[in-house]
């Protein structure tokens, strides 16, 4: 485990997020911080409200109450595209890729927020627009190489294996040069070997100075790479701490292994 960056201000502040769907209290007054340069994981049994929490953070779902601050920017109330423009990028549990586009084009989409050519310069193919395209390709190629996708640039994403499609999603998010990455179940659908590979990649991403928040089922992945863990159950935060603290926490053990009252 890498050392925690010794910066005192949290990069992401989540305060009292709350969401109900009809009678179901999916997320119940959840608060926590994510420190810059760390990997933080949100775990919990199925239906604990992890994905709902994630969607609220990324602007895909408005919370009933509560606030999310990224640096000193209020993310709550923003559209997803505005959240992305702040350097706060996410991936999806069920991959969301443009399956009819090539790998390269999918990844270049991640460069969108770093470029500015609009409809007119695009239609007229102005020099500025072409230079920007070239710079975009130059920027994303190392990312593709790093994820072993560089020999698949021209293949339509729909023709790739699931593991490779996951890699394309990660590459796309990295192409945006995000300060913070939200990974929604990044290991789901991956085999053991691929998951190990992913763990290394996430640690490398973190060592580049990016902050990572992930939701994950795979306990071994979470315990191996996270600096801190938040545990959700029935929408409530029941524990927060380092992996070793979480492993000793009685409430967590009761939820996962079954206890007297379970």
């Amino acid at each position: 485990m890498t050392e925690l960056a010794d910066l005192s201000d949290p990069l992401l502040q989540i305060r009292g997020l709350d969401k109900s769907f009809g009678g179901l209290h999916a997320v119940d007054n959840v608060s926590f911080d994510v420190m810059p340069g760390t990997i933080k994981a949100v775990i919990g049994p199925n239906g604990a409200g992890k994905t709902t929490l994630f969607n609220m953070i990324a602007g895909f779902l408005p919370p009933d109450s509560g606030k999310v601050h990224f640096r000193d920017i209020l993310l709550t109330g923003m559209q997803p595209f505005q959240v992305a423009q702040e350097g706060f990028l996410r991936t999806f549990q069920n991959l969301k890729l443009s399956s009819h586009l090539s790998v390269l084009n999918n990844v270049l989409l991640g460069y969108h927020t770093r470029s500015s050519a609009g409809f007119f310069s695009g239609m007229l193919s102005l020099k500025r627009s072409r230079m920007e395209e070239r710079r975009a390709v130059e920027t994303v190629m190392p990312i593709l190489e790093w994820l072993n996708l560089d020999n698949k640039c021209d293949i339509e994403v729909g023709n790739l294996s699931f593991g490779n499609q996951r890699a394309v999603e990660l590459a796309r998010a990295l192409a945006a040069d995000p300060a913070m990455l939200l990974l929604d179940e990044p290991a789901s659908g991956l085999n053991m070997h691929e998951t190990e590979d992913l763990a290394e990649r996430i640690q490398e991403i973190c060592s580049q100075g990016r902050t990572v928040l992930l939701v994950e089922h795979d306990m071994s992945l979470v315990m191996d790479i996270s600096h801190e863990i938040v545990v959700l159950n029935f929408g409530k935060k029941i524990a927060e701490g380092t992996p070793s603290e979480i492993q000793k926490n009685d409430d967590v053990i009761r939820i996962y292994l079954g206890g007297d009252d379970a």
Binding site: P80, A84, Q85, F92, K96, L97, S98, L101, G110
Partner: peptide, 12 residues
């Protein structure tokens, strides 16, 4: 066209 959520989440 492929996925509106994807484009949205990438800042479009």
């Amino acid at each position: 066209h492929g996925s509106e959520d994807a484009a949205d989440s990438m800042g479009v």
